[in-house]
């Protein structure tokens, strides 16, 4: 009950009332779950044979795991590419050269505004027709789209991370004779990277979720395999739920890691300003917000 100070510590009467509402709330929640369950059962969606496919080794070995491997492959390549892209363009946006700065700004703003799905569809056809790529064209199309969008987001993280460092850092660097670029490389960016780590991990969740868009271009990822598998077996609904659960588990773990990193960092780096007390606990999505820059950059990024 101490999570919020939006309400008084309840007295005996309020406690009783809250208990009552609590029970009502729990009953409503259980009721909704039961309603969904019996609704599904009534429509013949709760038959054991529709579900036990997903506890069989062959289903996992032949469909879900190969799909998951492709999903993770796309996500990992996407993450690596985004970080490289983000570093290059983030530093580019910090450049004092107007041309470089302008170019990087246009690229970053452009790719942040274009839907990932549009890029996936385009790259798939473009790569298939114009470039000779090793392996699966669809994989490259998904990775390219993920890198351009998320790389641009990371570039913004790098830029705002550097902007939020105390000015003294750069001044000290220049005072000991470093050039502007050296100070960036050796002093500012390493610190910015550490500060943006939680937001970066949060972005990985977005990348992982976005990889499911590859389904639309028949990239053989988890969702694609799940529906290829379920179609001949007549359990699409069940397959979608199982796929969602797999995504949720992975993403939830990633979010928790980001939260942990964020906590560890905030205890390491004391905030310069007095942090205002918060009315409620930090929003889970904005986990990283506090440590980087809560006003300008919002890591509670819906992505897809």
């Amino acid at each position: 009950m101490s999570a919020s100070i939006l309400f008084d510590t309840p007295g005996p009467k309020a406690r009783r009332r809250i208990l009552m509402i609590n029970i009502v709330g729990a009953i409503i929640a259980l009721g909704v779950v039961a309603w969904i369950f019996f609704g599904l059962a009534g429509k013949g969606q709760m038959k054991p044979e529709q579900w036990d496919d997903f506890v069989q080794a062959s289903t996992w070995k032949n469909y879900l795991l190969p799909g998951l491997v492709n999903t993770l492959k796309a996500a990992i390549l996407g993450i690596i590419g985004s970080v490289i892209f983000g570093l290059v363009f983030g530093v580019g946006r910090l450049s004092q050269n107007k041309l470089i700065n302008g170019f990087c700004t246009v690229i970053v703003e452009f790719f942040r505004a274009v839907p990932v799905l549009l890029m996936i569809v385009f790259f798939n056809v473009f790569f298939a027709r114009s470039l000779e790529l090793p392996g699966d064209t669809a994989l490259w199309a998904v990775v390219a789209a993920l890198v351009f969008y998320n790389g641009s987001v990371v570039a913004e993280l790098v830029r705002s991370g550097v902007h939020n460092l105390p000015k003294g850092q750069r001044e000290a660097g220049i005072a000991i004779g470093l050039t502007r670029g050296m100070s960036l490389r050796h002093i500012e960016i390493p610190q910015a990277l550490v500060a943006m780590l939680p937001a970066l991990i949060g972005q990985f969740v977005v990348i992982l979720k976005d990889s499911a868009l590859g389904y639309i271009i028949s990239f053989n990822e988890l969702l694609f395999f799940a529906r290829t598998y379920s179609s001949p077996n007549g359990n699409v609904l069940q397959a979608l739920i199982v796929t969602a659960v797999i995504f949720i588990l992975i993403n939830f773990t990633l979010s928790k890691i980001a939260e942990m990193v964020s906590k560890r960092l905030s205890s390491r780096v004391k905030k310069s300003k007095d942090a205002p007390a918060e009315l409620v606990g930090a929003p889970a999505g904005a986990l990283a917000a506090g440590s980087v820059d809560s006003a300008e950059k919002d890591p509670n990024n819906p992505g897809v």
Binding site: L223, R227, A244, S255
Partner: peptide, 13 residues
């Protein structure tokens, strides 16, 4: 926590 960690593609599908 459930919805935010699910791909939108799956939700619409």
């Amino acid at each position: 926590n459930l919805v935010r960690n699910t791909p939108l593609t799956i939700i619409i599908l």
